[in-house]
């Protein structure tokens, strides 16, 4: 057996022995693989024996690792159901994993607020030069990108922060769903998170039209038809968006207002509400945990003094 093969087997053994449960179950497999090498060398040419030996090692390693991962997931699932215990009788009414998910949600909410701020700041910068008219919209954007100092950078930042906000808002919905609590702060955070995701998607949609290029124009025309076909609200919504019967300069102005004032302000407000609700919930949990720990310590002190 070559030294490399031996070293590989040894490394795999060392790694799997870190997980005692799986090592107890599967170490005989590894032992038989290493023992089988002499037999392989007797039966096959060296290259083939080495290939079979390595294949067996790799298969063993992947199989055992998948079992280890499966067991860890099982443990995680069981722990998720187990409350965060501070003693025999004192339990904080949340679990460790809920707390971790909540911490993750708070971090994402902070990132979302940061992106909102970046988008708002760059949006204000762009508004200095953007011209919300049918003739001037595309021209002004080209001018921002090519003639204005740092215009391209600001335009890119606005674009990236807007798209990043959508991605984070969607991830946040999943994270919050996994850590659902159905308490008032959580519900406030949940609904503000949903509204923020919708606002972010709306901002992205209106931004495509505000570009006023061929793709944006025709896409808007098709989507306007879909909006108009909505029962009851469709025609009204269409006239609000277009500002009349057809797509014109007034349409750009309307969408600019929707984008820059209604949706942007709604996004920022929801983002602030979302983060505040999450921080409030975290503070509530912390105070509950501290009180619970205090009661436990007091009980322990009383029992030890008596």
């Amino acid at each position: 057996m070559s030294a490399t093969d031996m070293e590989l087997a040894s490394k795999m053994g060392q790694f799997i022995s870190r997980f005692p449960e799986e090592w107890q179950t599967y170490q005989d497999w590894l032992r038989d693989i290493t023992t089988s090498h002499c037999d392989l060398q007797a039966r096959y040419p060296t290259w083939q024996a080495r290939f079979i030996f390595r294949w067996r090692l790799i298969y063993f390693f992947l199989y055992t690792c998948s079992i280890i991962a499966f067991h860890r997931l099982q443990h995680l699932w069981r722990r998720k159901r187990k409350p965060l215990s501070l003693g025999e009788n004192e339990n904080v009414p949340i679990s460790r994993d809920f707390f971790r998910l909540h911490r993750l949600a708070t971090i994402i909410a902070m990132a979302e607020l940061t992106l909102c701020s970046v988008a708002a700041f760059t949006g204000i910068m762009l508004a200095f030069y953007y011209e919300p008219t049918a003739l001037g919209a595309h021209r002004s954007l080209v001018a921002i990108a090519t003639q204005i100092s740092y215009g391209s950078l600001i335009l890119s930042l606005h674009d990236i922060s807007g798209n990043g906000l959508i991605v984070l808002a969607l991830i946040q919905i999943v994270v919050m769903y996994l850590g659902r609590q159905f308490l008032v702060p959580w519900l406030a955070a949940w609904f503000s998170g949903l509204l923020m995701a919708l606002a972010a998607i709306g901002l992205s949609w209106t931004a495509i039209v505000l570009n006023w290029d061929q793709t944006g124009f025709w896409r808007f025309k098709i989507e306007l038809g879909t909006i108009a076909s909505l029962p009851l609200v469709g025609p009204g919504l269409q006239s609000i968006l277009t500002g009349g019967d057809g797509i014109s300069s007034l349409t750009v102005q309307h969408l600019y207002t929707v984008h820059s004032y209604i949706l942007a302000i709604s996004g920022i407000l929801n983002s602030i509400t979302h983060l505040t609700a999450l921080l409030y919930q975290e503070r509530m949990w912390k105070s509950e945990a501290t009180e619970s720990l205090g009661r436990k310590t007091k009980a322990w002190n009383n029992s030890s003094s008596s």
Partner: peptide
């Protein structure tokens, strides 16, 4: 392992020393 879980076979460690490189025992 499946047969062992079903109770059709039983395993026991062998008396041999652990393998020198991997430290794995025989079952």
């Amino acid at each position: 392992k499946k047969l062992e879980q079903k109770g059709f076979v039983k395993s026991e460690w062998g008396e041999e020393a652990p393998e020198e490189h991997t430290g794995a025992r025989r079952k």
